[in-house]
Amino acid sequence: MKDILIDDFQYTAQELLVRNKSILDLITKFQDSNSRVNRAIIKSVTQCGCLTISAHKQDIPEDASFDEMKSSADAHVGGTLCENCRDAVERDMGRNVFYLASLCNALDLNLYDIILKENDRIRMLGKYNLR
């Protein structure tokens, strides 16, 4: 079912993309949509205040095990997105995924296959694939 949903989304993106079919346009639109995601998240902190960010150096002991490292790392995010901010972030993330699917179409790649391969890679490498 999930593969059908992703394939359908990629097909729909291909059908609806008219003005920005050039790979150059797609790359810049993808980058622009990514910056809009960042901006929507930042606005939830600076304008709305539903989120807070308290960034500091991650305090992970040198001799920590993988599980200890995982549990001691912090996302630095406090609060939860309000309904308005959630809508803005989701809309901008959706646009970002649209342009990702469009890039896949331009390069004759299948987004679902890419997700499967990356999932296999990260599962196979497990904790050795730290990002």
Rank of each mutant, 00 (worst) to 15 (best):
D108N: 10
R121N: 06
L81C: 05
T80A: 08
D63F: 04
A64N: 05
F30L: 15
K127S: 00
M69T: 12
H56W: 02
A55S: 11
R19K: 07
G79C: 11
T28E: 15
I27M: 07
Q10Y: 01
D87N: 14
Q58W: 05
G78E: 15
S22W: 00
Y99K: 01
S54R: 11
G126P: 01
L130Y: 13
D59T: 07
M93E: 09
K43F: 01
A75V: 06
S102T: 02
N84I: 06
L24I: 10
A13H: 05
Y112K: 06
N119I: 04
T46G: 03
E15C: 06
C50P: 00
D59Q: 09
D108G: 03
E62T: 10
N96F: 07
D63G: 04
Q14D: 14
T80L: 03
V45W: 00
D3A: 09
I60A: 04
K21G: 08
N129E: 07
A40P: 03
L100Y: 07
N34V: 03
R95I: 15
D92Y: 13
N105C: 10
T52Y: 02
T28N: 12
R91F: 15
G94D: 00
Q31F: 01
Y99L: 10
L16M: 12
C50E: 04
V37E: 11
G79V: 13
D92I: 01
N110A: 06
R39M: 10
D7E: 15
H56R: 12
E90G: 02
I122Y: 12
R121D: 15
S33N: 00
Y11A: 11
E62N: 06
Q14C: 08
S65V: 04
T80K: 05
Y112P: 00
V37L: 13
C82M: 09
S44V: 03
T80E: 12
Q58G: 05
L100I: 10
L130R: 08
F98C: 08
K43D: 13
N84E: 12
I6M: 09
I6R: 10
R95H: 01
D92E: 15
R131G: 10
D59I: 07
E62Q: 08
L17Y: 01
L109F: 09
D113S: 09
D63S: 08
N129R: 14
L81R: 00
D7Q: 14
L111H: 01
R19E: 10
V37G: 01
T46M: 07
T12C: 10
N129A: 15
R91D: 15
D63T: 03
Y11S: 07
K70Y: 15
L111P: 00
H76Q: 14
I115G: 04
M124G: 11
K21H: 08
C48R: 02
L130N: 08
C82P: 00
D3W: 03
L16H: 10
E90N: 14
F9S: 03
Y128N: 14
L16P: 01
C82Y: 05
S65Q: 06
D74K: 09
L116F: 00
Q58Y: 01
K117D: 09
D113E: 14
K43Q: 11
I41K: 04
Q47H: 12
G49S: 00
D108L: 04
K70T: 11
C85E: 15
K127E: 15
H76C: 14
G79P: 02
A106G: 10
A55C: 07
L81M: 04
Q47K: 12
F66E: 08
Y128A: 06
D8Q: 13
I4Y: 11
M124P: 01
I27G: 03
T46L: 00
K29Q: 12
G78R: 11
